[in-house]
Every structure is written in C-alpha cells, then in structure tokens.
C-alpha cells in the first residue's frame, strides 16, 4: 500500500503537540506529549513545536514558558478572547488553518474529551489519517510515524501508519507517556497566528459550566498510590476497606468496571481500557481478576500488589507481588500494618 509521498506533502516538516488549556490550566497530558514529541523530533532531526490556543493573559504566557521547560523549540500561539472556553468551531478552525499554513508532518493531541472532539474534526477537514488512543509511538526506517494502539478492548494491539497523507495525526491517552523532566531552557521562537473567526460566526454558545463537586475525582489518573477493589470485595459495604487503606496511604481509590456498573463507586473511578489509565508508584488491587481490559489501564504502575483468593487469577500474571487470601480480612490487616509502620517512621524522622 506504500506510495511515494506527493511533492506537496514532502514540504510538511516538524512535530507538533497541541497544548490543551482549559480554564487557564494546561492538561498534564500535553506535557507528557511534549516529552514524547521531543524523542520523535530528535529521531527525525526536526523541530518540536507547541501549539497553544487560548485567551490573552498570564495563563497563556505561563503555558508558553512551560512549553520551553518541557522541551519545545518553538510555539505557535493563537491568542484570542473567544478561545476562552473550549468550543469545537473556533478551535478546529484555528488548528486546521495553522496546519495548512505551517505544515507539520506529525500532530499529536491528548485523547481527552477535548482532544478527541478536536482531533476528529481537524483530521476530517484535512482529510488525513488519525490514529486513536495510541500507547506507543515510533519512527520507522522511512521516517513514518508508527502508532501502536490497543483495540477490541485491549485484547489486541495494532500498529497503524498514515503513509500518503500529512500530517500524521495521533491521540494519546493521559498517563500513557511518562512526564518529562523540567529543564532550564531559554525561550524559543513564538509564531503568532490570527484566528479568522469572530463570535458571530460561532453558533454554539456556552451557557454555563458546572465544575465537578467531588474535587478528588480527576486525580486518580495522576495519583502516586492507588488502591482498587473488584467484584471480589463482595458488596458495596466492603469497599470501605479499600477507602480505609487508601486514606492511610494518602492514596486515591478506584475499581474494576463491574464495581462501577453495580453502582458501588462513581463512574470516574473506573480503571482500565474504558476508564482511567493509571501510572502510580504502587497499585494495590483487591478482588480484581485481572481481565485484559483492566490490565491495559494499570500496566504502567511501578509496582502492583494483587490480593485474590484464587491462586490462578490472571492478575498474578502481571502483578509484581501477589497474595493469595481473602481481601476482606487482609485489607484491614494491611491498613493497620501500614498505619503502624508509617506512623513510627514519621515520629522517628
């Protein structure tokens, strides 16, 4: 299926990362992607650009300066009041026009609700390929982007190319790529770009924004320690044992999909393929069998401890440490042991 890239597309150069900013804050996935984009740009010997869209002000300035710290060489900036809150029309217009004017060969976006909404529109207008939810990116011998992603709920992986069109677009889920180290960097070049749209052109209006009430909600993906329970916890009351341990560890808690479906815990706490990807230093999974759809969301953890009554549970195939036993008895014992140990050390230190 390989054809020669047309002369027109040969002029497309550089790796771009879309920097996702909502209500003044950059989504961490954008920095993770700059880290990954840096590797791709170095391999190709091209520049890495941050694409930053938002209303003028300090938040925008901060985002630009952070982009240098996370490895960008240059930044395309659309500073425009009507980009204050995300709406598809002005954002897809700005990003599409930027691509058509400055021609990147690779364009990466976070697979967040914003990123997926935007990427699908932009790729369709540009008539180029878009690979969704990638877990691995590489450059092949022909300088093409090899984007690997799980499908069929994680049972399969596939590697996808966009051979004959540019840019090669991909979305990547939060927490799949490691956060890059901040470095001292001198500012790069800023290329300002004007949005050719005014408020009257935009049909969609934002009437209200209702922030999530459970403030701890979104932190699961970025938690250092996560304790989760599965159907093996037996009943919603037993979930208390999970949250007790989480509290002692300063951890976030979550669950497998059935625990959400049964209403034991809220939907934003689902871990796995159709929930959150986590990357903690320690993941404790109690009463979770370790189905592939769960596994793909937790494999980035540095250390996994699984507690299960069944010595043959699949979770023991990818956990680092295992404990065969009844979670409803082991968890309270663990909570006590951690509490004692951490408290003693705290006093001693």
């Amino acid at each position: 299926a390989k054809k020669e890239l047309s002369e027109h597309f040969k002029t497309y150069k550089d790796v771009w990362v879309f920097i996702e900013m909502e209500r003044g804050k950059v989504h961490t996935v954008s920095w993770e992607l700059l880290g990954e984009g840096r590797k791709l740009a170095d391999k190709l010997g091209v520049q890495l650009a941050a694409v930053i869209l938002g209303p003028p002000g300090n938040d925008l300035k901060q985002a630009i300066s952070d982009a240098w710290s996370y490895g960008a060489d240059l930044a395309y900036v659309v500073s425009e009041p009507l980009l204050k809150d995300y709406r598809n029309e002005p954002y897809s217009k700005a990003l599409t026009d930027l691509v058509n004017t400055h021609k990147p060969e690779i364009l990466l976006l976070g697979a967040s609700t914003l990123g997926r909404d935007l990427a699908g529109s932009v790729a369709t207008t540009l008539k180029t390929g878009l690979t969704a939810d990638c877990t691995e990116l590489a450059i092949d011998d022909d300088r093409c982007l090899a984007a690997t992603r799980p499908t069929f709920g994680g049972t399969l992986l596939c590697t996808i190319f966009t051979l004959n069109f540019r840019p090669q677009m991909a979305t990547i889920r939060p927490r799949v790529m490691a956060m890059p180290e901040r470095r001292d960097a001198k500012p790069g070049r800023v290329i300002e770009f004007k949005l050719s749209m005014v408020e009257d052109d935009i049909v969609t209006k934002i009437l209200d924004f209702v922030p999530d009430t459970s403030t701890e909600e979104a932190h699961l993906a970025y938690a250092d320690i996560v304790v989760a329970g599965g159907l093996g916890m037996g009943n919603p009351g037993n979930f208390r044992l999970i949250t007790d341990l989480a509290a002692v560890l300063g951890a976030e808690y979550g669950g497998s999909r059935p625990t959400i479906q049964k209403g034991w815990i809220s939907a934003d706490r689902q871990i796995g393929q159709t929930g959150k990807t986590i990357r903690p230093k320690l993941y404790i999974a109690a009463g979770i069998s370790g189905a592939i759809q769960h596994r793909v969301g937790v494999e980035g953890a540095d250390m996994i401890l699984a507690i299960n009554t069944d010595a043959n549970a699949p979770i023991f195939e990818f956990a680092h440490y295992g404990l065969v036993g009844d979670a409803t008895r082991i968890l309270p014992a663990l909570t006590k042991a951690f509490e004692a140990r951490l408290a003693v050390r705290r006093m001693a230190s």
Binding site: T128, G129, L156, L157, I160, F161, I292, G322
Partner: peptide, 23 residues
C-alpha cells in the same frame, strides 16, 4: 482510508509472574 493497519498482535505476556507472599 489514509490509515493503514500494518500489524496486529497480541500483547506480550510479562515474563515473570508475581512473587507470592508466603501465607
């Protein structure tokens, strides 16, 4: 279709299994 699926494969199993805590 601009995207081309080049390779489909099953995820690699981890080489080592979990170290079990003696109970």
């Amino acid at each position: 279709s601009p995207t081309v699926v080049k390779k489909v494969f099953a995820p690699q199993p981890r080489k080592e299994k979990a170290k079990m805590v003696e109970t």
